[in-house]
Computed example of a mutant assay.
Amino acid sequence: MKLGVFTVLFSDKNLEDMLDHVAAKGIEAVEIGTGGYPGDAHCKVDELLADEQKQMDFMEKITSRGLIVSALSCHSNPLHPQKKIAEEADTLFTKTVKLANKLGIPVVNTFSGCPGDHEDAIHPNWPVAPWPNDFQDILKWQWEEKIIPYWKEKAAFAESHNVKIGLELHGGFSVHTPATLLRLREACGPAIGANLDPSHMWWQGIDPVESIKILGRENAIHHFHAKDTIIDQPNVNRNGLIDMTSYSDMQNRAWYFRTVGFGHDSKEWIDMLSTLRLYGYDYVVSIEHEDGLMSIDEGFTKAVSTLKPIMVKESVGDMWWA
């Protein structure tokens, strides 16, 4: 496995300075945003698609520092009921897949998106209760009319470009659990997989190790984020886990994000890394830092110091003891 970082953290730095900074910390891989929610500070898709020399220069800057690109990321909502928003997200995803193909990058990360509840909706509708039955009707319509048709087409497109799609299992989007990811994968094919982020498992009450087993059995983990979460039980008792309290109001939230090691200890991260390896994932663990209690650089540095000693680097070879 390689230790990586989602470079949106360092959008204030230019590409070269960012690469120097993360390489100096011992990072081996970078996940780079191409637009959407992550922004495009380090990767201008249109410029690179139009110029092969710029593509070569871009990759040389990365590889010359001993780094790889684990994924291009364009998190957004391509199923948004407002056509302009959906079309912008769809265009960005399509361009990102094309660029990943040209650069030899195997994964594009994004969100599944979330539709509205009918054709003339204005806002996404994320059903989270099976009753009253209206919610079941909405969910059925979303999956049959929007989610599966869209991603079936995109999975075929990605596969034709030798790219895998890593969908981040994130609240507010239609694919947010192992079950919903596997439902989409079954309908659309193996190009669809997870960009698995344990922080979003914890707050949904899902054991990340078990989520790795569920998805790993189906070879459905295409990328892995490293971000932590803390559960504030007294606030859970008041708000529940589906908590609409602002992220900035951390004292009153049921849960909030922490840097790696500050929500769960090293043993839990060791268990996750071991289970990833057990189920055949031998790729990148990409640090994502959204900790409201410490600066970007401090949170990033602490995540590196937690993960670096426990990364498993070498293959077993023969079992000499058996």
Rank of each mutant, 00 (worst) to 15 (best):
M1R: 04
E153N: 10
A322M: 07
L169Y: 02
N235E: 00
W321A: 08
H42K: 06
D90Y: 03
H222A: 13
S286V: 00
D249C: 01
G263C: 02
E268F: 07
E186N: 14
E144H: 13
A179I: 02
W269S: 03
T180G: 13
L181F: 03
E60V: 06
I32V: 13
D297S: 07
M1S: 13
P78A: 13
M311L: 15
D134F: 12
K267G: 02
T63M: 03
W203N: 14
I206T: 07
A100V: 04
G35D: 03
I212R: 05
V163E: 07
L103W: 06
T177P: 09
S160L: 05
L293K: 14
E60K: 15
N237Q: 13
A86T: 08
D134L: 11
C188K: 00
H161F: 09
A322S: 14
W321Q: 12
L241A: 08
E159V: 09
N239P: 10
A50R: 01
L3N: 03
P149I: 12
M250L: 12
L307M: 13
Q136S: 12
L72R: 05
A86P: 11
H200Y: 10
P106A: 08
I212N: 05
H176F: 14
I138T: 15
V128G: 06
G292T: 07
A50C: 01
G216D: 04
I296M: 11
H264K: 14
K61Y: 07
T259Y: 03
L48M: 10
S266L: 12
I206P: 05
D291I: 05
L67T: 03
T177Y: 06
M56H: 04
W151C: 01
I206W: 04
S246K: 09
E186F: 01
P127Q: 03
D12N: 12
Q136Y: 00
S295H: 00
I85M: 11
D228R: 01
I230A: 11
T34V: 11
V45E: 01
P234T: 09
A191Q: 06
E298N: 00
N235Q: 14
R217L: 08
Y247Q: 08
I270F: 00
N162D: 15
E60G: 01
D134Y: 14
